[in-house]
Design a protein around this nucleic acid. Structure first.
Length: 283
DNA sequence: CCGCGGGCCTGAGAGC
DNA sequence: TGCTCTCAGGCCCGCG
């Protein structure tokens, strides 16, 4: 479910309750997530304090007082739930969502503040892992990640370097976390529409033979940043009909003013891509 | 090396 | 109503 904007939103909501809090008790109800949860998972958390809760790509990164780091990934269906203590003082939404399923509550953090943080993940594509801080940089999960799309370090020159010589379609390039880290199936389609680029166009064609970015590369960088920033904008997170421009809008009119095209759905490396054949012409 | 397709899981929704 | 099929916002691996 979550791409960078959604993971960032989870971080913002979790940080106030986790940062500064101590793990009193950690319960692992199911350890067979995407990767098996380590046998010493709970013992490496209990009694430790969370120094900070950050994000890298789609990973949540909790720094612990022990020098360990807790890496969490939501996969496709992972989510966190925050419950206050005792059940007496439950958040109001408990009253109108009384039957929310706890079937897939796989990991539970009981914090010293009295708050409980629950990780729920029906499909179990998510993961949780503890690594020692010095090993974090070399960790296979993080080491190969490309730049954070919203950082200043992500610009046309950097994108050009990543795309040079690559014969994959642009859509596949944007979903490749080594090229740029944090886009997924939705925002890849969205960014390509904003940039007016065909999802099937070869990635290498945004780069000159000498490796310099063409104007399209510049456009794509700007589009990626725009799309992600808008997604994180509070007004856009609301459940409104215009949440996405093209994603899941097969058959609808292209939202670009004066375009008049119709949104098409194609399948690329097994995933749906949505785009407008008129303003995102192959070239 | 590179690109693609399959697989991992469960649940929601469409169609019969 | 109930069954079957397809598809889902991620990522890793192995094949050609």
């Amino acid at each position: 479910m979550p791409e960078l904007p959604e993971v960032e939103e989870v971080r913002r909501r979790l940080r106030p309750v986790m940062a500064g809090a101590k793990f009193d008790r950690v319960l692992v109800h199911r350890s067979d997530l995407r990767f098996p949860i380590q046998p010493d998972f709970a013992s490496r958390l209990e009694g430790r304090t969370v120094k900070s809760l950050g994000r890298r790509a789609k990973y949540l990164v909790a720094e612990l007082s022990s020098g360990d780091v807790l890496l969490m990934h939501l996969g496709m269906s992972g989510s966190f739930r925050v419950e206050s203590d005792g059940g007496r003082d439950r958040p109001a939404d408990y009253y109108w969502e009384p039957e929310r399923s706890t079937l897939h509550d796989h990991v539970v953090f009981e914090l010293s503040s009295g708050v409980t943080v629950v990780f729920n993940d029906p499909r179990r594509f998510g993961s949780m892992r503890i690594v020692a801080a010095p090993d974090l940089g070399g960790d296979p999960a993080l080491a190969a990640l490309g730049p954070e799309p919203l950082s200043r370090g992500f610009d046309a020159a950097v994108l050009a370097r990543a795309l040079k010589g690559r014969r994959i379609p642009l859509k596949a390039a944007l979903s490749d976390q080594r090229v740029v880290a944090g886009l997924g199936n939705i925002y890849a389609s969205e960014a390509l529409h904003v940039a007016r680029l065909s999802p099937t166009r070869r990635a290498s064609t945004l780069v000159t033979p000498s490796g310099a970015p063409r104007p399209e590369a510049q456009r794509l960088v700007a589009a990626i940043k725009d799309v992600l920033r808008q997604a994180m904008d509070k007004r856009h997170r609301a459940y409104t009909a215009d949440r996405f421009r093209v994603y899941d809008r097969e058959g609808e009119r292209c939202p670009r003013r004066g375009c008049g095209g119709v949104i098409k759905r194609i399948v690329q490396s097994g995933r749906s891509t949505f785009f407008c054949q008129v303003c995102q012409r192959a070239r």
